[in-house]
Simulated scan of single mutants.
Amino acid sequence: MTRIVDTRVEPELALELATETLARGEPVAIPTETVYGLAADATNPEAVGRIYEMKGRPRFNPLICHMADLAMAERHAIFDPLSRRLAEAVWPGPLTLVLPVRPDSSIHPLARAGLDTVGIRVPTGFASRLLAAYGRPLAAPSANTSGRISPTAAAHVAADLGGKLELVLDGGAAGIGLESTILKVEDGEIRMLRPGGLDIADAERIAGQKVLRPETAGAAIEAPGMLASHYAPRAGVRLMAKDVRPGEALIRFGGKPLPGEEQAAIVLDLSPSGNLREAAANLFGYMQKADASGATAIAFAPVPMDGLGEAINDRLQRAAAPRE
C-alpha cells in the first residue's frame, strides 16, 4: 500500500522515510518546483532499473540526475565556462544542463542511457533538502507512466503509479508546472534540447548570446522530453481549435470563449488574464481534469508562442502527436 506523507506537515518524518526507502533501492515520488519526480539512487543500477520498469520507459531515454547543489554536480560532470555561468545564475531552479560525465562519476550508465553525457539539475524546496540528506544524486524523471501527462500534485502520482510505489511525498501543487528547460553547450554555442520552465529569453540574457533551437525531425535522443509523442492524455488532442465539437473538453487561454463551448464536457481556461506563467502552472493539471471528464477529445485553443508559451506549445504538440 502506498504511503503519502505531507512534507509541509511532517517534514522530518518525510525525510526519514524517504532516505530509508531510497537506501533500499526503491523509488520515491518527490515534489519539485517543476513537476513531481520519480526519484531513485542514480548510482544504484537496480534502483534506476525500477524507475524504467515503473514508468514503462524506453531505456534509450536518459534520466535527469538531480543534485543538492553545484558542488555535488561538479563531482559528476565537467562544466565549461558558459554552462557554469548558467548554473550559477539559475540553480536551484528549472534548468537542466547536459554535460560531459566525469570518468570517475558514480552515476550508473543506465541512468545516462549509456551516453557519455549526463543531464543535471538542482531543484528547490524539499527535494533540495532530501538530496542534501541523502548525499547522492537522484535520477528523477516525472512520476507518471511514460508518455502520459506529467503530475503536478501528489494525487496525480497516486492515481497513476500508486499501486507500484511505497512512498509519495506531498509538497502541494508544483509552482512552475512544466518540466525544466534542457540546454547543452557545444563549441561555445547553446542548444535547446527541450523548452521548459526557464524562459529561453532569460537564458539568453544570462549567457549573453542566442540559444539555438533544435532541428527536431530525426533528432537523436540526448535528453528527456525529445520523443515525438509525449505528455499525452488518454483522450485525443485537437490543437489550434477555433470552435468546440459536442462532447469535447475545451482548454482555452486568455478568457476568450469559443463557439460551441456550451456543448463541451468541461471548459477550463489556462489563464483568463492571459498570463503565460499561470498557464504553464495549470497546463498538466487541467489536462488531467479534462481527461477525467469523459470527453471524446480535448480541444486546445491557441496559446501565444512568446516566453513560456514556447514550452507550453511544445508539450501540446507532443501530446497531439501520433501514438505508437
Score class of each variant (00 low, 15 high):
2 T>F: 05
4 I>S: 11
6 D>M: 15
8 R>P: 03
10 E>P: 07
11 P>V: 09
12 E>T: 07
18 A>Q: 05
22 L>T: 04
23 A>W: 08
24 R>I: 11
39 A>T: 04
42 A>S: 10
43 T>G: 04
47 A>S: 08
49 G>R: 03
54 M>I: 15
58 P>W: 02
69 D>A: 03
71 A>I: 06
75 R>L: 15
79 F>Y: 09
79 F>E: 02
80 D>C: 09
84 R>P: 03
87 A>K: 00
89 A>N: 00
90 V>T: 02
91 W>G: 10
98 V>E: 13
99 L>S: 05
104 D>G: 12
108 H>T: 13
108 H>I: 12
109 P>I: 03
112 R>K: 15
113 A>W: 01
115 L>K: 11
115 L>G: 05
117 T>E: 13
119 G>A: 07
119 G>L: 01
125 G>I: 08
127 A>N: 03
128 S>T: 12
132 A>R: 15
132 A>I: 07
133 A>M: 09
134 Y>R: 01
145 T>I: 14
148 R>M: 14
152 T>M: 07
152 T>E: 04
157 V>S: 04
161 L>D: 04
161 L>W: 00
162 G>Q: 01
171 G>M: 07
179 E>L: 04
183 L>H: 02
183 L>E: 02
185 V>P: 01
186 E>L: 12
197 G>E: 00
200 I>P: 04
204 E>Y: 04
214 P>Q: 05
217 A>N: 05
222 E>P: 02
223 A>R: 00
228 A>Q: 06
228 A>I: 08
229 S>M: 11
242 K>T: 15
247 G>A: 08
256 K>S: 07
266 I>C: 13
277 R>T: 14
278 E>M: 12
281 A>F: 06
301 A>L: 15
302 P>H: 05
304 P>Q: 11
317 Q>T: 13
324 E>W: 15
